[in-house]
Amino acid sequence: MTEWTDTSSALRDGLARWLDALNTTSTGHDGTSAFPWDRWKLVKDSGLLRLPFESRWGGLGADLRTTMHVLEKLGEGCRDGGLSFSVATHVASTGVPLQRFGSTRLKEVYLPKICAGDAIGAHAITEPDSGSDALNMHTTAVRDKDHFVLNGNKTFISNGPVADIFVVYARTHPAGGSLGITAFLVERGTPGFDIGDPVAKMGLHSSPLSDLYFDGCRVPADNVVGRVGWGYRVLHHVMKREILYSFAISAGAMRHRLDRCVDYANTRRQFGKNIGSYQAVAHKIVEMKIGLETSRMWLYAAAEKVMTGVESTMDIAIAKLVTSENNTASALAAIQVFGGYGYLAEYGLEQELRDAVAGTVYSGTSEIQRNRIASMLGM
């Protein structure tokens, strides 16, 4: 059983007072596909973005499990799934690698802006011809004196249209493999770096997505995150936290959905009885509960291994797979519990289903996670 410190509980409780405001501000509705700048300001003011970073950069110094605990509350209380996803992306994709691998100069210049939310972060890994095969990327970075020159394209970049700072992964050695990739910090507006228009997608509408284009983009060699050839090492560190952060948010959304369904089943009457008294309805809700608790156990157990330095690759894959698929099943079950009302946009459940499906795709598809687990089992 997980026990939380007073500090962890205080940070989680501190977020609660911001949640009503996050749900009542005017922009960023699912139907608009616009980034919710007013809600982002509330997120900044709440201190949420400061959680896992050291105090000397303006952070709160929360450990991994505490950060997840607070993000789970965000998922429970904020109905804008796109905004929550952008928060996790900002923190994990840019702040996390800079704090762990960035030079003192990079930290001094950029981490305070990331903690404050004054500069939005994103990372660029995926390419049109090498989605899940990250080591087969074709974007290149060639050394030219005190710069690297980047050429290539990136796709499916969350936060791309609004981000100010990008951690870009590019090939620096033609031989390929894990030692051929390097991570670079690239600012919006760098000559030779263009950002495509927002791309329409199924869900997470308020978290904008775009392509990135590099054409002779000159990046100072001092902007290497870590060392040349360390890109895979940086990415491995980042992806563990990206998965744990974003799916802790999913667990919070699952808890909120479960509570709604229990309340609805105990008040909605059909054929003279509350619908929760019918086994067909009750069992759906029981499965939602089991899915939630199973997901949370895997997420926090995996986090414990990461924090203690124990090998956690399989645990992360299982946690991601279990949570993403349980979240999608939970969202579909909620629509069925609510019946015709669940199908109406007014109730928000169809939006939650569209948002949940994304979790089975990003950060490595369910199929990739199963392949990874099978490989670690020796198959």
Rank of each mutant, 00 (worst) to 15 (best):
S8E: 15
S8N: 11
D13P: 00
N23I: 04
T24L: 14
H29Q: 13
T32C: 03
D38V: 13
K41S: 12
L48E: 06
R50P: 03
R50Y: 03
E54D: 15
A62F: 10
T66G: 00
T66S: 14
K73G: 12
G82C: 10
S86C: 15
A88V: 09
T89Y: 00
H90D: 11
G95T: 09
F101P: 00
G102W: 08
R105E: 15
I114M: 06
A119G: 12
A124L: 11
T126N: 01
T126Y: 06
E127Y: 07
P128V: 08
P128E: 12
S132N: 14
D133K: 14
F148W: 14
N151A: 05
N151C: 12
G152V: 00
K154M: 11
A170F: 03
R171F: 03
G177T: 07
I181E: 01
G192M: 07
F193V: 00
P198M: 07
V199G: 02
V199T: 12
G203Q: 01
H205T: 09
P208V: 06
P208K: 05
S210W: 00
V219I: 15
G229M: 09
V234A: 00
L235S: 01
H237C: 02
V238C: 03
S250A: 15
R255S: 10
R257H: 00
N266S: 14
N266W: 03
T267E: 13
R269H: 11
G272S: 07
V281D: 04
H283P: 03
K284D: 09
V286K: 12
M288K: 06
G291L: 08
T294I: 03
L299D: 07
A301C: 07
K305L: 07
G309H: 05
M314H: 02
N326W: 00
T328A: 15
A334Y: 05
Y343P: 01
E350A: 07
R354Y: 10
V357S: 09
I373S: 02
M379A: 07
